[in-house]
C-alpha cells in the first residue's frame, strides 16, 4: 500500500514520520517567562517537502529544535516514527538525532580541520559503523551531492556552495528519516543558493523527507507544503499549487 502511495506521490496520506500534538515550550529568561510555542500540532508524512516559515520570535527556531530532537517540549506529545520523543533522555535523543535526522545548518558547521570525507563520516562514527564501511558510505554520499572530486579537501579549500553540499552529504549519509535544513541558503549568494535548492529538490525526488526552516518566501516556494508560524501558533498550513500540479502530472 505504501509503495503504491509513494509511486503515486500522494504524500499527505502516507505514513507519518512526525506527529506532534499540542506542544508548548516555555523558557524562563531572567524574570520573564517566554511562551515560545503555545500549542502546536503538526503531522509530517514520509517524503514530504515542508517549509516552516515565520518572522523572528514566531517560535520557528524553537519548533525546529523540537523537530530535530535537540530540545524537548514543556508539554504535549511528540512521536517520531511512533516513538515518544517528549520523554526521552539525553542519550536516547542523541540516538534519534544520529539515526533519524540529518541536519543542514545555515553556517554549514563543518569541522574546519577535517576533509570532506572525514566530515561526512562523523555521524557514522557515532553510529558505530566500522571504518571501511564508513568511508564507503561517506564517499557515496559525497558522490550524490556531486563532490566526488572534493573528498580530500578541507572546508577552507571549498566554496560556500561546496561546503553546504558537504554538509548535505553529511546529513544524508546515515539515510535518516528526515533532513532538517535551517536556512540552508542563508549564507550563500542567490545563484549558489539556487544550486543548493536544486540539490534539495533532487533529494526530495529520490524519496527523502525534507523540512526546511526559512524566513525567505523565495526559498520556501521550493517546498510542497508551507507552515506559517506566528506568536507560537500555526497561522496557516498550505499545500502549494505546485504539488497539486505535480500530483496531476504523476497521476496522469
Amino acid at each position: 500500500m505504501e509503495t503504491l502511495d509513494e509511486s503515486l506521490n500522494i504524500r499527505p496520506h502516507g505514513r507519518s514520520v512526525i506527529e506532534i500534538q499540542d506542544i508548548t515550550k516555555r523558557y524562563v529568561m531572567g524574570e520573564e517567562i517566554v511562551h515560545a510555542l503555545r500549542g502546536v500540532s503538526l503531522r509530517i508524512h514520509r517524503n514530504e517537502y515542508i517549509a516552516i516559515m515565520g518572522p523572528s520570535g514566531s517560535g520557528k527556531s524553537t519548533l525546529m529544535n523540537m523537530l530535530g530532537c535537540l530540545d524537548t517540549p514543556t508539554s504535549g506529545r511528540y512521536e517520531f516514527n511512533g516513538k515518544n520523543v517528549a520523554e526521552m533522555d539525553d542519550n536516547e535523543l542523541a540516538e534519534i538525532r544520529n539515526r533519524e535526522i540529518g541536519f543542514v545548518f545555515q553556517t554549514f558547521n563543518l569541522l574546519p580541520r577535517s576533509t570532506s570525507l572525514r566530515n561526512v563520516e562523523l555521524p557514522l562514527i557515532y553510529a558505530g559503523i566500522n571504518p571501511e564501511k564508513r568511508e564507503e558510505m561517506a564517499a557515496h554520499a559525497l558522490q550524490e551531492v556531486g563532490l566526488a572530486d572534493r573528498m580530500n579537501h578541507k572546508p577552507n579549500e571549498l566554496s560556500g556552495g561546496q561546503r553546504q553540499r558537504v554538509a548535505i552529504a553529511r546529513a544524508l549519509v546515515n539515510n535518516p528519516s528526515i533532513i532538517l535544513a535551517d536556512e540552508p541558503t542563508g549564507n550563500l549568494d542567490s545563484k549558489t543558493g539556487g544550486e543548493i535548492m536544486a540539490v534539495m529538490e533532487t533529494l526530495y525526488q529520490r524519496g527523502h523527507t525534507i523540512i526546511l526552516v526559512t524566513h525567505e518566501a523565495d526559498i520556501a516556494r521550493h517546498a510542497r507544503r508551507t507552515v506559517h508560524l506566528r506568536d507560537g501558533l500555526i497561522e496557516s498550513d498550505d499545500y502549494l499549487p505546485l504539488m497539486e500540479s505535480e500530483f496531476a502530472i504523476s497521476s496522469s
Partner: peptide
C-alpha cells in the same frame, strides 16, 4: 553543538 546534533552522546 554540531557533534551533539550529529548524534554524539554526553559520554
Amino acid at each position: 553543538g554540531t557533534r551533539k546534533a550529529l548524534g554524539a552522546r554526553r559520554r
